[in-house]
Amino acid sequence: MSRVSAGSGAGSRRLAARLFGIPLRWLGLSAGAATLAVSGFFGGLEGPDEPAIPVVQPGTVDRGSPWNVTVSRVRLVNDLGTLRLTVPGDRWLAVVATVEVTADESRNDLDDVLRLTGVLGLMSQEPAHVMLMRDATELGRLNPGMPEEIAFVWEQSAGAAPPGTVTVQIYGKTYRMDNLANRMEWLDPAVRAEVVAPVQDRRAG
């Protein structure tokens, strides 16, 4: 600054500024170009990657929090004992999975464990019933460290084609500080893994 102000006239000051400016700009531009080139070489110019959702084989345990999930089989059935279809003639689409709570407390959000994608005519996004296979009772609560075989049951409209294969999405949650409540909560339900399973048609008649 002192050198510029010490210049004798306006012309020489401009010259000095140009002399200063050109290499700086050149330096900046070339540094930027080099950065782009290097980052582009390492994939910096590609679009942001969606995290790939791992595909899990049926019968394989998918470990995570707040539950470990093993999807065993998917079936179409007409009749499930005491369960009533909202529209007579519809069918049940049931995913049987073993769920073990890995959190430290009993969980009552079991209808958040699984979702189905690519199935037309489902009456609800979340399962209509979550049944304990052990005694066919509606399961509201699952205790930690006690794996249970559970049927997640959706009602599919009779008008929709019965699926040959379904993609079962396994959801997980994250135990983190809820900034609003300032306490630890299980938040951010997100697809953790997917299971592509064939549908066994066990409808009677």
Binding site: D104, E105, S106, T137, L139, R141, N143, P144, G145
Partner: peptide, 17 residues
């Protein structure tokens, strides 16, 4: 109503009945 174990895990009363 819940039971707590030595590890601090909590098991709430059964809702199966």
């Amino acid at each position: 109503a819940a039971l707590r174990d030595e590890r601090g895990r909590l098991y709430q009363q059964s809702e199966r009945f």
